[in-house]
Design a protein around this nucleic acid. Structure first.
Lengths: 133, 133
DNA sequence: GTTCTTGCAAAATATTTGCAAGACG
DNA sequence: CGTCTTGCAAATATTTTGCAAGAAC
């Protein structure tokens, strides 16, 4: 994968820092929290990483997953607009605390009460993951 | 509703503090964060409220909702065991930041990859609520 | 008196912002 | 130069624990 092209495709200027962060996200099996990400680098500023993640999220290169503890981030799929219908389900393991994307399992479309307008959805299962059981 | 009976039914000793917290949860339209709850009282210790919420959650009197910002809590329905199939969907408004329970809309049962064991689910829509649109 | 609960203090963790220096066009 | 990005510092918010006094049985 060409990281630079990937950033450009989402209108993100490909700086050095951003390329490195993207690389970490690509290489990671599980979703990463800000602290996780910080730990991947020998020496990195948390505020910069924070803003990098925010930029990535805003440009829909990554999506955030709200679960136990801190928010985690993972790469979006090609063409994802983060609307409820193109989001997938996540799994958070209560033993190892890892968060996984079930990209095969889309968030189902549900009818919600009148007047409510859903822009995105966050669906996370909690339990024991395949590695820990 | 008899608050004392409700606590007893979940094996929670009905202290004064707990009765007051339960009352707030019952009276509240939306789910409450720890800080929200603290704000409902003139003078209350956050640690006590925190532990009260934890106790309530553990005994399945309330359920936690992980969304933007802090975790929020709302009453469980009668007989709820907080397993994926008896949980409902939530809605978090990005304008007023309130979190609502859609008790009519259950979390759908999905097939998840082999080896993963789901004990609970957290499904939250983000968008604009009926009051704010 | 033993166990559970509460209040106060403070630690630990997570998220966010201000500001000035640096990079880039 | 003008704009965007980064690093350092620090504020803010949130979650969690220790410990001793108090309440309940």
């Amino acid at each position: 994968m060409n990281f630079e092209k990937k950033l450009n495709s989402r209108n993100i200027k490909p700086t050095n820092m951003r390329l490195l962060v993207l690389q970490q996200l690509v290489e990671s099996e599980a979703a990463l929290s800000l602290t996780d990400l910080e730990g991947k680098f020998h020496r990195a500023d948390k505020a910069t990483l924070y803003r990098t993640l925010k930029t990535f999220e805003e440009k829909k290169l990554i999506h955030s997953i709200e679960g136990k503890g801190s928010v985690k981030y993972a790469l979006c799929e090609e063409g994802c607009e983060c609307a409820p219908q193109d989001q997938h389900v996540h799994f958070n393991c209560e033993k190892c605390a890892e968060t996984f994307c079930f990209t095969q399992t889309k968030v189902p479309s549900l009818k919600i009460p009148n007047g409510f307008k859903a822009k995105s959805a966050n669906m996370v299962y909690h339990g024991i993951c395949a590695n820990c059981s």
